[in-house]
Design a protein around this nucleic acid. Sequence first.
DNA 1: CCTCAAAATGATAACGTTTTCATTTTGAGG
DNA 2: CCTCAAAATGAAAACGTTATCATTTTGAGG
Lengths: 335, 335
Amino acid sequence: MANIKDIAARAGVSIATVSRALRQPDIVKAKTAKKIEEAIAALNYKPNMLAASLRRQRADAVIVAVPNIYNPFTSSFVQGIENVARDNGIKVLLGLTEGRRDLLDRHYEMISGKQADGLILLDINRPTVIEMRKPGDPPLPIVIACEYEDGIDLPRVRIDDIEAAATAAGHIAGLGHGKIAIISGPTTQRMSRDRQRGFRLGLRRSGVSIDETLIAHGDFTVESGAHAAARLLDSGKSFTAILCENDEMAVGAIHVIASRGLRVPDDISIIGMDNLRFAEFANPGLTTIALPTTAIGEQAMRLMLDFDFDAESATREVILPHELIVRDSTAAPKA
Amino acid sequence: MANIKDIAARAGVSIATVSRALRQPDIVKAKTAKKIEEAIAALNYKPNMLAASLRRQRADAVIVAVPNIYNPFTSSFVQGIENVARDNGIKVLLGLTEGRRDLLDRHYEMISGKQADGLILLDINRPTVIEMRKPGDPPLPIVIACEYEDGIDLPRVRIDDIEAAATAAGHIAGLGHGKIAIISGPTTQRMSRDRQRGFRLGLRRSGVSIDETLIAHGDFTVESGAHAAARLLDSGKSFTAILCENDEMAVGAIHVIASRGLRVPDDISIIGMDNLRFAEFANPGLTTIALPTTAIGEQAMRLMLDFDFDAESATREVILPHELIVRDSTAAPKA
DNA sequence: CCTCAAAATGATAACGTTTTCATTTTGAGG
DNA sequence: CCTCAAAATGAAAACGTTATCATTTTGAGG
């Protein structure tokens, strides 16, 4: 493969000039630039980015770590990241964690290995390196999206899960439901705790009281939503609506309810959260809370670009707005 | 950051020995290795992969280009790639194309820029570089998955779309359906042509004839499936089953059918293809053809590892088996 | 035609590895 | 204790850029 030296030789200039023609075209004479251009075309030269990154001490790439990619949420989130990355000449690399910490650590290695400059994290896990960091050390180039916790000195962008869940609960209560079940996520997760807290808050605001025995637990997957709904139905307790902490579990719940011959929303109203792409095409269309996924991605990338290694604290927090989307899975209770 | 030189100094050896201790531990004396290990731990040394890759002329990374990531198919496909990549010390980077050729080309730049060694392509587009290649040139390090076309000298792995579709059609015909509609993809795509051909083949084998006016077209998205189903219903023609070229469109079709008060499968049977994760939880559960997605990914990565730049032809083809998954969206027609 | 900043270009030292080739050390066999 | 392969280590040259500093070229103003 042709390198910068070959181009320089062919164009009759020094390699420094070739490099400048590529990086700062405005400071080389038009005539010289043309000769170089021709040489590049003739030899089909492609700059070696490894060498460039090595010398410049930056890769102009970020790695986005996500637990899985089948989640449509992930999709538009990454979309947002790409939008602003592209405008800034930054490459976006996706890394899958499957919720495993060792895989996340492997992705972080791309940063210590200098192949990427920063990590945007959409995962409940944190790389080991965060714990290794001593108080005086420079901040780690990591931005956290959605999931968050206190006591970690990193920038983050998220929604207000509590208010979002309260909005969902308020919608259900507003329709007149009084006996309301909840399908919650794992309480080990901050997001789940917040959403459950939000459900309670929203119901309380509407003067609806909560039956603690009508709370079932899942793990945010369709399957777990189905199981949780089955348990609620099997319990024999009566209820006319289910608040689900995410759409996946809501879809599972609808499936089970329908397969038992009950009807949504006539017999039971269902509301989810996240507004997955499939939510609209569920049967019936799922009422849910939409998150500004693309905006979250864009904001996360901006936080990454703004990253200041000299600041004594890296903590910054951006909270973006959510929105209630009413479809056909919720209605006033019968009679 | 500490570099190999610092380690060498601290351990009292040459940098060559440090490098060897890292890459080929078996050829350095245990005592020396230990000193080096200590130095590495003390200075928290992380090898600079850029420098290593530059020198070794290989990045040990492949880039996987996919049109989107919300497609669950993509997910397990990538999973398969990661499985075998991991075993071979190869990093997997995901690049999104959104079906856009310019974005695909940008990802290919990572290869010409030496940041990755190969490209695995799950997309109908092809990078421009394929056309630029002249007959004598060395083969491009690209492996094609699922989508394929003739006349491109590249290794590929796929399923037999024709037989898979024929299997689906055979299932429907076997249930006794005679008036069968089809929701097809864009005929510009080879995969769509093959699947439609397979549907026809399967029906012919069962002695069922095709009503050409019962063929509607979509573009493989849920939305388009919904529209296509609506057009079929609006046409006033009668039919008792719909063969959908993929699950997404099948889900859209079910949604429309249900919203018109018809029942699946009592009034209309629906079969899809791909076995998306959501297929199982559709209402009713979707009968479909499962693709060996993980195996396809694994095989694609193996083809990448086997890539031989000296071979005069790069063409290789691996075809993997599919499987019929019967759920609740198909049944014998009434009366 | 001269002068002299400003503009353009060149020579060269990094960046942090791996690898080749040369040199030193080791230890089994005498 | 010597000999001498084999084993272990070292010196230094790549890999292909970018950036610093030095040098040359340009052309406006006299």
